[in-house]
């Protein structure tokens, strides 16, 4: 079963993602509230995929993506963006993120993106 790490500062979003992802048959191995924690949890669990919020306290999603990629070049990061964050998403992609999804989340899009990344 694929292991997923969810990084988002909003508990609501984590819950939302958790529901969708678990419905898809994946396992949430850990959750993190900010980028820094996300990096630590990644190192600890080495998940198959990370969903990464962009705007977070402590360390934002772009820096966290960079650190994770530094730690593991094969890391698969899916950026979760709010509307109007295009340029940040481009930065995240530059930093090594594989793909992105836009809030509010649509199940089909998340599934599509995850399938693509994990295969």
């Amino acid at each position: 079963m694929k292991k997923i790490l969810v990084v988002d500062d909003a508990a609501f979003m984590r819950l939302n993602l958790k529901n969708i992802i678990e419905d898809m048959g994946f396992k949430i191995v850990a959750e993190a509230e900010n980028g820094k924690e996300g990096v630590e949890k990644y190192k600890e669990h080495q998940p198959d995929l990370v969903t990464m919020d962009i705007t977070m306290p402590e360390m934002d999603g772009i820096s966290a993506t960079k650190e994770i990629k530094n730690f593991d070049d094969n890391a698969k990061v899916l950026v979760c963006s709010a509307m109007g964050q295009q340029s940040l998403v481009i930065e995240a992609i530059e930093a090594g993120a594989k793909d992105f999804i836009v809030k509010p989340f649509e199940r089909t899009r998340i599934r599509e993106a995850m399938d693509k990344i994990l295969n």
């Binding site: 481009i90 992609i93 530059e94 992105f100 836009v102």
Partner: peptide, 13 residues
């Protein structure tokens, strides 16, 4: 497509 510019940049990447 949402964020077409981002897609374009991914294509370029």
């Amino acid at each position: 497509t949402q964020f077409k510019q981002v897609r374009a940049s991914m294509i370029f990447k």
